[in-house]
């Protein structure tokens, strides 16, 4: 057994469901993440904030290995996601099936929705349960209908993504994520591509999810949302976590100059 397979020694007392250890990532010569560690305890909302280019989206994408970190590992439920030895780059996934199973338990909501354009809204939501989880079509449809109703677009179930507004598409994408019954929801700037008047409807759905105790990791520029909903706020600056703590702590008394500057630039 590889020593890296041992659970992280400094696991938080409540045994975080998700744990990211000393992640490093470079794109060419540009170091985007410089050894970042993060924990997401169950039923908590962790928000990642920071200026663009600070590495927050890359960090989120490293969690489900859409981006493969050059160094460092991700543990989910005490199990390390199988990546090859970092000392022999390029690093790759060593057990694809294990990663697929892990990804099915982490759902991601993207900035640009990424709904499948050739499938109806209902089919977008049933696709994963039927073809990844092996749920029966009837059961998947029933559940999908309930989820679409929940995010308020049940009447759009037979439309195609291009026929919906951005806010409706993003709510459909959230329903698609929920249909997988994920343990953790990853949100990658879910409202950044929306017209201002459509942001509210998406944030409302996300707020409800947080209220019902979902484990969420959110990259967002919506500071009032971050402040209200998060249990923990993490501020990234130049690929490092510079500050982390409760929302009150971060927003009212930022300790570093970088964080103070960032907050004053985004809060009007």
């Amino acid at each position: 057994m590889d020593s890296r397979d041992a659970p992280p020694s400094s696991a938080s007392p409540e045994q975080a469901y998700l744990s990211v250890r000393r992640i490093k990532k470079k794109f060419g010569d540009l170091a985007v993440l410089n050894g970042v560690s993060l924990e997401a305890p169950e039923h908590e909302v962790v928000s990642l904030i920071g200026a663009s280019g600070s590495g927050k989206s890359t960090l989120l994408r490293c969690i489900n290995l859409l981006t493969i970190p050059d160094e460092g590992d991700v543990w989910i439920d005490g199990v390390r996601l199988p990546l090859s030895d970092p000392s022999r780059p390029p690093r790759r996934i060593t057990d694809k099936k294990a990663v697929r199973l892990a990804r099915a338990r982490l759902a991601m909501v993207f900035q640009s929705f990424n709904l499948w354009a050739h499938r109806t809204i209902l089919e977008n939501v049933t696709e994963g349960p039927i073809h990844v989880l092996g749920v029966s079509a009837a059961e998947a449809r029933e559940k999908a209908t309930a989820l679409l109703d929940r995010v308020g677009i049940a009447d759009k179930r037979d439309f195609y993504p291009a026929q919906l507004s951005g806010g409706q598409q993003q709510r459909a994408a959230i329903a698609r994520a929920l249909a997988m019954e994920p343990k953790i929801l990853l949100f990658d700037e879910p409202t950044s591509a929306l017209d201002p008047e459509l942001v509210g409807e998406v944030l409302k759905v996300m707020r409800d999810l947080a209220d019902e105790g979902r484990t969420m990791i959110v990259v967002s520029h919506e500071m009032s949302f971050v402040r209200d909903v998060s249990n923990k706020v993490v501020f990234l600056h130049q690929g490092c976590i510079v500050e982390e703590g409760g929302p009150a702590e971060i927003f009212q008394s930022p300790k570093t100059e970088a964080c103070r500057k960032f907050l004053s630039s985004v809060i009007q």
Binding site: R100, A107, F110, F113, E127, V132, A173, M180
Partner: peptide, 21 residues
């Protein structure tokens, strides 16, 4: 579109399912 392929990966689809569906 690359984003749609990422969405397929993120939901846990393997190579064949992603290709076919």
């Amino acid at each position: 579109p690359h984003g749609q392929i990422e969405a397929a990966l993120a939901i846990g689809m393997g190579w064949w399912t992603k290709l076919r569906r």
